[in-house]
Amino acid sequence: MYRPKVTIVTNTFPPYREALFNHWAESVDLRVVVCESIPPGRLWDPGKERSLSVERIPSIRLGQGGKSLIIPLALRRIVKDSDAVVIGGTWRTAAVSLKAARLARSLGKGVVWWSGDFDNYFYRERARDSKGWRLVLGAYQKFRKLFSYSVDTVLAYGQRAGEDVIKNFDIPAERVFWGTQIIYPGNLSPSDSLDQEKIEVLKVGPLGLFLGYLEERKGVCQLLDAVRLLDNPSHRVIIAGEGSMASEVARASKELPALMFVGYADPSLRTALFQVSDYLIVPSLYDPWSQAVSEAMTAGLPPAISSEVGAGDELVVDGDTGLVYPPGDAKALSDAMNRMVSNPDLMADMGNRARERVSAFNLEYAATAFQQAVEGAISLSKQRR
């Protein structure tokens, strides 16, 4: 039986998706092409045997730091040998995405747009306050429009991203599939070497957990303000993560008795934090999905999230599997946090329902969306020949 050759073109290999990629590789001949780098650590084992091919190709970097563009130099060879190409169309990979999509289209290959973007509070606020941001976002929307012309099908992170594509681009709903964000199993693996007594010291009262990158987009400023508004003096909040705001969080943890900062959380620490925490806090001003939501719900923790978290559309029903509040509102966030700990029975019930709801978002669920998008793209590419 013929196995379609599918290439995922990305700027970097996100190791937390390795389980998903390996599962996809069971049905197709899958190759992941990295145009930038594979980050050190981050659960990546370079010596591990894999059922998929991971290749890094030479690239040109335009610009510096997080605002740089990556242009690969060997796309033609890779695309020519594929039946379908899966491409992430984000601002960071704009040059890669557009070039790969047009090249694949010209060679008669299927093109799948792997999209997580949607209209969001973070972008809207910056566009309102800054002409520079308005110009950047306007250019990005034009890029997405150009990119969409070369797309056969869309593989969206979730419902929110899928609906955004249908609304803003001329892609029929029947060619848009969503459901690719699942947890990385290793993130919930206990470790025998972990000092459980040490981690239990954290459990001195009701405990909320923030787990993620420490960046402005993640709502870190609003979270710090919300901690200052907590009602219960024994209510504590742990922040685990790394990023550009780490020093600010560290300073705040010294000033606020309710706040603890533990830095980057490896898999064993993540597991321990899920075990001792009562609920998850996701104050993002924009988040395409949020792996932490899936992981926390799997561990039985109800999340308190802003309405700009992509996972909320499928996973978080306000008052049933978690709490949802307006983005950027520190008072509304503190109210949600206070509500969590003021009603332990409700919090426990929401945690149980959260675990049940997220169980359907598994590898098979994600594999189905991937297979439908790829098969649809290959079928449409054949009709164009």
Score class of each variant (00 low, 15 high):
V282H: 02
G132S: 11
I378H: 02
K48F: 09
A19L: 00
A354K: 03
V151P: 07
S191K: 09
L135N: 07
L209T: 02
A139R: 11
W178N: 09
A272I: 00
D83C: 07
P72C: 10
E242R: 11
P344M: 06
S150H: 15
L363N: 12
P327G: 04
D45W: 07
K99L: 15
N338E: 09
G212P: 10
A299G: 02
L188H: 00
Y123F: 12
E125S: 13
L103A: 12
V86D: 08
T271Y: 14
G186Q: 11
I239A: 10
E36T: 00
V6C: 05
F370N: 08
P14A: 14
A332E: 10
L285C: 06
D329Q: 04
T12A: 14
N343T: 11
R92S: 13
V341K: 03
D164A: 15
R236P: 02
L52G: 05
A226P: 08
E163R: 13
L214S: 06
F118D: 01
L273V: 01
E295Q: 04
A354Y: 09
R355Q: 11
L103Q: 09
A246W: 07
V85E: 08
A348I: 09
I199R: 01
A19R: 08
D231T: 11
D313P: 00
P185F: 07
D195G: 04
P14N: 13
V151K: 02
G162C: 03
P326W: 05
S51V: 08
G219T: 01
L188W: 00
I70K: 11
P288S: 12
F21Y: 15
D349A: 15
A304P: 06
R126L: 13
R217A: 06
N11K: 04
D225G: 00
M245I: 03
E36K: 09
D335C: 05
E255H: 05
T93D: 15
A226T: 01
D45H: 12
D29Y: 08
L346E: 15
W91H: 07
T298N: 06
G376E: 05
D349N: 13
S191Q: 10
N187I: 00
P206Q: 08
L333F: 05
K67A: 13
K331M: 09
V54F: 07
F21E: 03
Y365L: 04
